[in-house]
């Protein structure tokens, strides 16, 4: 838990990160920045998906529509927060010359998106028949 607090603190106190280890090649930092931006785009796409479920599936029952939209929005929030956390951790690891942090998050996100997609297909098909 204290690890998390320390990470969140370093989002806003960048001097702490800069004080550690040595400055890596700027190209590595830029690659890390692009990975961060790619995750942010994923988050924005999930949020856009949440809006789309709400707007473009009007025939769906309200509980289903609300549930799917909130699931997508929640995934988007997690994705954005994780993006910045992972960026800080990678930046710190590069400064210290450590291995880059490993993460379960991509696998989890893949499973969640797969599950949401299956639910959406089933719900839309049933809605069309009924």
């Amino acid at each position: 838990m204290s690890d998390l607090v320390r990470n969140v603190r370093s989002w806003f106190v960048p001097e702490e990160v800069r004080g550690e280890g040595s400055t890596p090649d700027y190209r590595f930092s830029l690659a890390n920045e692009r990975t961060f931006l790619a995750w942010l785009r994923t988050a924005l796409a999930l949020i856009g998906g949440g809006f789309a479920v709400d707007q473009f599936l009007p025939d769906l029952g309200r509980p289903w529509r609300l549930g799917l939209a909130l699931a997508l929005l929640g995934a988007g929030v997690l994705c954005a927060l994780r993006a910045v956390n992972h960026w800080v951790r990678c930046e710190r690891a590069m400064r210290r010359g450590e291995d880059l942090p490993v993460s379960r998050f991509p696998a989890l996100l893949g499973l969640v998106i797969g599950a949401v997609a299956v639910v959406m297909v089933v719900v839309v098909m049933l809605g069309r028949e009924g």
């Binding site: 989002w11 806003f12 942010l40 988050a43 949020i47 954005a80």
Partner: peptide, 18 residues
């Protein structure tokens, strides 16, 4: 390098949109 505050603001803006 990208300042950490900058990255945090971009992510928090995304969260605010959600």
């Amino acid at each position: 390098r990208l300042p950490a505050r900058h990255a945090a603001l971009a992510a928090l803006g995304t969260v605010a949109l959600a």
